[in-house]
């Protein structure tokens, strides 16, 4: 009775929010995923353009690096056929790991559309995970055929890719997706402090382009740059899964790679926890 009096008239029968309910979360994910998919399908034209953009960059890289390697030649252990495979798979990994939330957050903070997300008894990251997954699933419809076309059209070398490589690749890919998502989500949170974070985004993506392996395979980079790259989180979000798929890493090397990915993921999650709490405290955008 006393507790009813404190909590008000309609407390009875309310769900317990002090712990996570997995079935409820699963229901939410299903709902948010289908909402996001409906959105993406409503704007399928825009999605198609994004997918085309995703395909253009590897196309350019393939043309350039094939020319550099020349017919029958090699650059740092990559033949021109292997460059084709590398950039084709990179495109797939890039599509599956890429997130655009850094730009979205700037908009959210400036317009106050972050507020409704903060009013719900669920962490806003869940919505972003769903939106992201949905976009990726739909995008695969364009990216996978494009990848096959690139490999076939430019004569990519897939002789080292077997079932073992594909399975090992899938785990590396999942970890890369998780790592990049969490890390870039944290970076996006800087919008709470800066409100205009485009400059920071561009810096981040420039560094990522080099150290992550999307500009060139790590083996091609100068020794010093490669050393820096390997102690950064970047190659573990892109180059590593690609190398695993191509069979350029095997055995213990792959296991160590997973370990490094997990380590970075753990760090990123810790950072997320820390920064998120401060970000919410900080939230005071005009018109929030």
């Amino acid at each position: 009775m006393a507790e009813q009096a404190v909590a008000g008239p309609t407390t009875a029968g309310r769900p317990d929010f002090s712990r996570v309910s997995w079935p409820a979360l699963a229901r939410y994910y299903r709902g948010e995923f289908s909402a996001a998919t409906a959105n993406n399908l409503a704007y399928r034209g825009a999605v198609a353009i994004w997918v085309v953009t995703t395909v253009i960059q590897p196309l350019v890289s393939i043309v350039v690096w094939r020319t550099v390697a020349g017919p029958g030649g090699q650059v740092s252990g990559y033949s021109s056929a292997e460059f084709v495979t590398y950039f084709a798979i990179t495109m797939l990994v890039e599509h599956l790991t890429f997130i655009w939330l850094m730009w979205e957050f700037e908009y959210r903070i400036r317009t106050g559309s972050m507020s409704p997300l903060l009013l719900r008894p669920i962490h806003p990251i869940h919505k972003d995970v769903c939106d992201n997954l949905s976009y990726k699933v739909i995008g695969l419809l364009g990216v996978v055929p494009a990848m096959v076309l690139l490999v076939v059209g430019f004569g990519g070398d897939v002789s080292d890719i077997g079932v073992a490589q594909v399975l090992a690749f899938l785990l590396a890919l999942l970890l890369a997706m998780a790592l990049r998502f969490v890390l870039e989500w944290v970076l996006a949170l800087s919008a709470f402090w800066l409100t205009k974070i485009s400059a920071l985004n561009n810096l981040y993506f420039s560094v990522f382009l080099f150290l992550g392996g999307s500009f060139a395979p790590l083996a091609v980079l100068p020794e010093a740059v490669r050393a820096v790259a390997l102690v950064s989180p970047f190659p573990w979000m892109l180059a590593f899964p690609v190398e695993v798929a191509m069979g350029r890493r095997s055995g213990a090397d792959v296991l160590v790679g997973y370990g490094v990915q997990l380590l970075w993921l753990g760090l990123a999650l810790l950072l997320l926890r820390l920064v998120w709490r401060r970000a919410v405290r900080r939230y005071s955008a005009v018109g929030a």
Binding site: P15, F17, A24, R27, Y28, G31, E32, A35, R120, P121
Partner: peptide, 8 residues
């Protein structure tokens, strides 16, 4: 329906 899931 989404709210239903969020608010359980």
């Amino acid at each position: 329906r989404l709210n239903q899931a969020v608010f359980r």
